[in-house]
């Protein structure tokens, strides 16, 4: 029976990263299509604290590997642990959310197992041995259906394309194992968190993004975001200029988002940016240039100065409450 192993991810604060639940639902879909079963793995210094959270998603088993050496995430120490577990379970598929950690770790796991890999999988097609994956190429301008022909197949899963798994599907068996620990030539030095009271970009229901048109003044964007409980995003130009933290970049090479509402203020809409937000349900574009490409993907466009529109928008939205 085909085995699908989904790797869960703990944030530095120990909580599960939400994209894990999107990856679990993709893994469940894959297990159903392959006619196999879903397993979930988590390794780290203390994975047991989130064990209960991982139990209710219809997995056959949740495998927890604890080791002091795994305190700080490093691809070099996590990859042997995951690869050894996958070999022991005879996993056919290994998947993880397309987070920074997923993209750093899984190719190293794949390398260890000489497995072919598909990055940013958006859809799982076919069934049995004929499963193919749809993934973006050329900054999302092309969707490719790919088949992996190695015995073990490795995937990162784009969280915005799979719903977060619903819990309450029975209690999976929780198994602990001793992760394979190898000496590392890399050591963790520090992690500087960008702290924000606003929701995480990839998890927010509403995203307000600013581009070059803001000239670096994000006050109105942040104000509107706080009014709506939204996350703040930015175009590449704005991050490059150092006006906002890099972590806010929306685009093919930054964060890929798909909120219910995406408001692009002063963003022209380069291909690279569009690839990161085109899947949003409703898109609003505010830009002075009527020819800006952002208007081609916007449901509602306003040709106007964002510094005039945003305060008005905040006042008008306040009336709805």
């Amino acid at each position: 029976m085909p085995i699908v192993l989904i790797v869960a991810e703990q944030q530095p604060d120990g909580n599960l990263r939400k994209a894990t639940f999107n990856a679990i639902s993709a893994g469940k879909q894959l297990a159903e299509k392959a006619g196999g079963e879903l397993h979930i793995a988590l390794v780290g210094k203390d994975p047991s604290k989130v064990a209960d959270e991982l139990k209710g998603y219809g997995a056959k088993a949740v495998h927890l590997g604890a080791a002091a050496e795994l305190e700080h995430y490093l691809a070099e120490t996590y990859a042997p642990a995951i690869a050894a577990l996958a070999q022991e379970l005879k996993a056919d598929y290994i998947g993880m959310a397309s987070t920074a950690q997923g993209k750093d770790l899984l190719p190293r796991v794949a390398g260890r197992l000489r497995a072919a890999m598909a990055t940013d999988v958006m859809a799982i097609n076919g069934s049995g041995a004929d499963i193919t994956f749809t993934r973006p190429m050329w900054a999302g301008n092309v969707f490719a259906d790919v088949k992996l022909t190695t015995p073990v197949k490795v995937l990162t899963l784009r969280a915005t394309e799979f719903p977060a798994a619903a819990g309450g599907q029975g209690a999976a068996e929780v198994k602990t194992f001793s992760p394979k620990v190898e000496a590392s030539k890399t050591k963790f030095v520090d992690f500087k968190e960008v702290k924000s009271a606003r929701p995480e970009l990839t998890e927010a229901r509403v995203v307000i993004s600013g581009g070059r048109g803001t000239k670096g003044d994000f006050k109105e964007i942040e104000g509107l975001a706080d009014d709506l409980g939204a996350a703040v995003g930015a175009s590449r130009a704005v991050c490059d200029a150092g006006w906002v933290p890099n972590d806010l970049q929306v685009g093919q090479t930054g964060k890929v988002v798909a909120p219910a509402l995406y408001i692009a203020a002063g963003i022209s809409g380069a291909i690279q940016h569009l690839a990161g937000m085109k899947s949003s349900k409703t898109i609003v574009a505010i830009n002075k240039d009527p020819e800006a490409p952002i208007f081609q993907v916007a449901d509602y466009g306003m040709v106007a100065d964002l510094f005039k529109v945003l305060p008005e928008l905040r006042a008008e939205l306040a009336k709805l409450k």
């Binding site: 193919t132 999302g140 301008n141 969707f143 490719a144 992996l148 993907v297 449901d299």
Partner: peptide, 16 residues
């Protein structure tokens, strides 16, 4: 070990 079986254009968003 990766076969690209088919490429397609992403679905276009309807004009707003």
């Amino acid at each position: 070990a990766i076969q690209v079986l088919k490429m397609s254009s992403p679905p276009a968003r309807k004009a707003g």
